[in-house]
Amino acid sequence: MEPTRVEQLVDDEWKPVHGITNVVIYDEQQITRITERIREVQDAMTALMHAYAEAARPLLEQVGRAFQTLHQARLVESDGKPTMRRDRPAWQSPYGPPARRH
């Protein structure tokens, strides 16, 4: 069986359309059903995303309050990076004193 050729009219000349492997022609009733199904799926996805956002809201608010507490205690900067520790001088390594060579 010879493959079906798909062509389009360009400048009054029929030219082949490359890369098309399948062509399906729907009637108006099929298009209406497909459109309705797409709308149903879209509505279901929207409802799912709203439910997810509402479920995540308390956790995200708690994380925000925890971050605000850490920021007020000056343990993190406004971008979330830790601040310098107050229990050691700025020049001292957070990993302890350097190893001594003998």
Score class of each variant (00 low, 15 high):
Glu2Phe: 06
Pro3Thr: 04
Thr4Arg: 11
Thr4Leu: 14
Arg5Asp: 10
Val6His: 07
Val6Asp: 06
Val6Ala: 06
Glu7Gly: 01
Glu7Tyr: 07
Gln8Lys: 12
Gln8Gly: 11
Leu9Ser: 05
Leu9Glu: 10
Asp12Pro: 03
Asp12Trp: 03
Glu13Leu: 08
Trp14Tyr: 10
Lys15Ala: 07
Lys15Leu: 05
Lys15Asp: 03
Lys15Met: 03
Pro16Tyr: 00
Val17Arg: 00
Val17Asp: 01
His18Ala: 09
His18Phe: 07
Gly19Arg: 02
Gly19Ala: 01
Ile20Leu: 06
Ile20Phe: 02
Ile20Arg: 00
Asn22Ala: 10
Val23Lys: 00
Ile25Tyr: 01
Tyr26Glu: 04
Asp27Lys: 00
Asp27Asn: 08
Asp27His: 04
Gln30Ala: 06
Gln30Lys: 08
Ile31Ala: 07
Thr32Lys: 15
Arg33Asn: 13
Ile34His: 09
Arg37Gly: 07
Arg37Pro: 03
Val41Glu: 06
Gln42Asn: 09
Asp43Trp: 12
Ala44His: 10
Ala44Met: 08
Met45Tyr: 15
Met45Cys: 12
Met45Ser: 09
Ala47Ser: 05
Ala47Asp: 03
Ala47Val: 03
Met49Arg: 12
Met49Tyr: 11
Ala51Asp: 15
Tyr52Thr: 07
Ala55Asn: 09
Ala56Thr: 08
Pro58Leu: 02
Pro58Ala: 02
Pro58Val: 03
Leu59His: 11
Leu60Pro: 00
Glu61Gly: 02
Gln62Asn: 09
Val63Asp: 13
Val63Pro: 01
Gly64Thr: 09
Arg65Lys: 11
Arg65Gln: 12
Ala66Met: 13
Ala66Thr: 11
Phe67Ile: 09
Gln68His: 05
His71Gln: 13
Ala73Asp: 15
Ala73Trp: 14
Leu75Gly: 13
Val76Tyr: 00
Val76Phe: 05
Ser78Pro: 10
Lys81Asn: 15
Pro82Gln: 01
Pro82Lys: 00
Arg85Cys: 14
Arg85Val: 07
Arg86Ala: 08
Arg86Gln: 14
Arg86Trp: 10
Asp87Val: 00
Arg88Thr: 00
Arg88Ser: 06
Ala90Glu: 13
Trp91Ile: 10
Trp91Val: 05
Tyr95Thr: 04
Tyr95Lys: 13
Tyr95Val: 05
Gly96Glu: 05
Pro98Ser: 02
His102Ile: 05
His102Asn: 14
